[in-house]
Design a protein around this nucleic acid. Sequence first.
DNA 1: CATCAAGATGAACCGCGGTTCAGGATAGAT
DNA 2: ATCTATCCTGAACCGCGGTTCATCTTGATG
Lengths: 193, 193
Amino acid sequence: MTQARAPRADAVRNRRKILTAAGKQITQHGPEVGMDEIAAAAGVAVGTLYRHFPTKTDLVAAVVAESVARVADDAEAVLARVTAGARAAEELTTFLGRVIEQSVTDRAVKAAAQTLGAEPGDRVDEDRGSAAVAALIRAGQADGDIHPDVTVGDIYLLFSTAPTEQPPAARARWLALVTPGLTATARPTDSRR
Amino acid sequence: MTQARAPRADAVRNRRKILTAAGKQITQHGPEVGMDEIAAAAGVAVGTLYRHFPTKTDLVAAVVAESVARVADDAEAVLARVTAGARAAEELTTFLGRVIEQSVTDRAVKAAAQTLGAEPGDRVDEDRGSAAVAALIRAGQADGDIHPDVTVGDIYLLFSTAPTEQPPAARARWLALVTPGLTATARPTDSRR
DNA sequence: CATCAAGATGAACCGCGGTTCAGGATAGAT
DNA sequence: ATCTATCCTGAACCGCGGTTCATCTTGATG
């Protein structure tokens, strides 16, 4: 086996600095930030960025992946709550709203949401987040308060179409408009309120 | 009044050529087309574009305005149909779907839809289209098949958030998800604005 | 301590696309 | 026919942002 030489200590350190700095920059200004700005924030020269990431796209992807993981954490927490007895439909919509609000503050989360929505078909269970959301939906459908047609893809579709650029009132209104399509049809099956 | 000299004949001709060429180009490739390409399509030099439109933004705005007008025509036709007895809710959702489908084919219409959605507050009656949609909504609400909270702003909000980049199935699904929020009869929505 | 490959630096390169402007052409008035 | 204000032309300009590379620095190895 050609044992690859271990990476140098400062290289490891720089990689970390780059990743955190890029995360901070992309969070604040979105993926459009210049490589120069990321480099400056990391206290490193541009060339170093390209030593660790062959292209800007790769660097952004790495950062976005972290945000995706964070959203997945949230999804799993929601699932746990539902399993513990919380109302699935309500948890789902608040989860949706929460991700959107984060997308407003954190442009990396926004990119992550867009990424999920852009993926082909319903590749459920491809990752933790999708699995959790899928389970959450199934639970809600079993209880009869989430519409039977709803899929994980629907949620991702809504992620990627959320009006992130709009004022808070518009975002709230959008969520309200979309919620009825997710919750069960006006069917009096469950306990009336 | 300082009577401005009448524009030269060829200038008028060129302006028209530019406008139609820009319309065709933007329709096909979106507002991102280069000025060079528009100029070439119009059989004119770049400088001529800038003689008639001080900036690219202005040229695009002129083209988009035409698309807005075309959507307004559609809205008025829909209103007429409803006045003649058609179901308002159904007409509204098919109208919404129609505009979205046009946005897929015609990138100018897409820009127009985005423009409408980006405008502040509910500047209803500012133009024919908004007035028609407002009347349409009112009619549907009177009949009880459009949710009382729905406003023109909601429709524009949906215009601007439609998943134009997604495959047909996803677009159809999105419309289905959103429809209940417009038509739902007795569902508590957090009214605002 | 000497050596050298891994790593870092940053000025320069490059394509892109909107914009400008000096020079040439032409419509239309006299 | 002449003249001029209007209009057209298109090469060049410019800022922007991602990417490269010759050169220098440094951590690890013996």
